[in-house]
Amino acid sequence: MTTTDADAVRLVLEGDAEAFKILVDRYYDRCLRLATHLLGAGGDAEDAVQDALLRAYRHLGAYQERDKFSAWLFRIVVNQCRTLGARRRGVQALHERAWIEQGDGEPAEEHPADREATREELQRALSRLDADQREAVVLKFAEDMTYDEMAAVTGVGVSALKMRVQRACKRLRAMLTETNHV
């Protein structure tokens, strides 16, 4: 039988520190992927996740069961990434996501041999976005979060997040189009 997040939290709060391993095993990879998208590959992302997990453990009593545990934990990871200065760092490529669109709204088609070049261009373009726009794009498209989930993670309103994603996509399209026409 699978232990739910709420059950694992309850066990930890009752003194079973080993139960936190259930949550770490369940969410570590997603937290690391999120941190990597925000900070770039390397030690900073791993450090952010380790610090976030430590903070989550220490503040587990503040977790409210009405919240989704993953959103609560991702909020801690995002805040830790902000603290580590994600503003000008490189960002892991988001691969072929729907937000890299052509003017007609269809995903851009690319030959498999061009994927690495596309990843590098995308990485450069993402690193040029403002941190708040980059964060919104990563949460929306790399983590497939809804706007409500994004709001829970970031503490920013849904309408502001929609605007950030829209502006980021517009700017990314312009940067990538500019790169491809040079």
Rank of each mutant, 00 (worst) to 15 (best):
R66Y: 15
D16Y: 06
A62Q: 14
L38H: 01
R30H: 08
G61L: 08
G42P: 05
S70R: 11
D67I: 15
D29W: 11
A17I: 10
R30N: 07
L53I: 05
A48V: 05
R58N: 13
A35H: 04
L32V: 10
R33T: 09
Q64S: 10
Q64E: 11
E14F: 06
D16P: 11
D29Q: 13
L60N: 03
E65Y: 14
V24I: 15
A45S: 10
R30T: 02
Y28D: 06
D44Q: 07
R66N: 12
H37E: 01
L23S: 05
G42T: 04
Q50V: 11
G43P: 02
L53A: 08
D47E: 14
A17T: 11
R10H: 13
A17E: 15
V49G: 00
F69K: 06
L23Y: 14
Y57A: 01
Q64C: 04
Q64H: 09
R55D: 08
Q50I: 11
A41V: 02
H37M: 00
D47Q: 14
I22F: 14
L11N: 13
R55A: 06
R26T: 08
L39G: 03
L38V: 02
A62D: 15
L23I: 11
D44P: 00
F69M: 07
D16C: 04
D16N: 13
K21F: 00
H59K: 15
A48C: 05
G15Q: 10
Y27N: 04
L60D: 05
A52Q: 01
Y28Q: 09
D16A: 02
Y28K: 12
R58E: 14
K21R: 12
Q50C: 07
R26I: 07
L34Q: 01
Y28V: 03
G42W: 06
A19E: 07
G15M: 03
Y27Q: 04
G61A: 09
R30K: 10
H37V: 10
S70P: 10
A19F: 08
A62T: 09
Q50L: 07
A35C: 05
C31V: 02
D44A: 07
R66T: 13
F20H: 13
A62C: 10
F69D: 05
R33D: 05
E14W: 10
R33E: 08
S70I: 13
L38Q: 01
L53Y: 12
A52V: 01
R30G: 03
L53F: 15
K68F: 07
D16H: 11
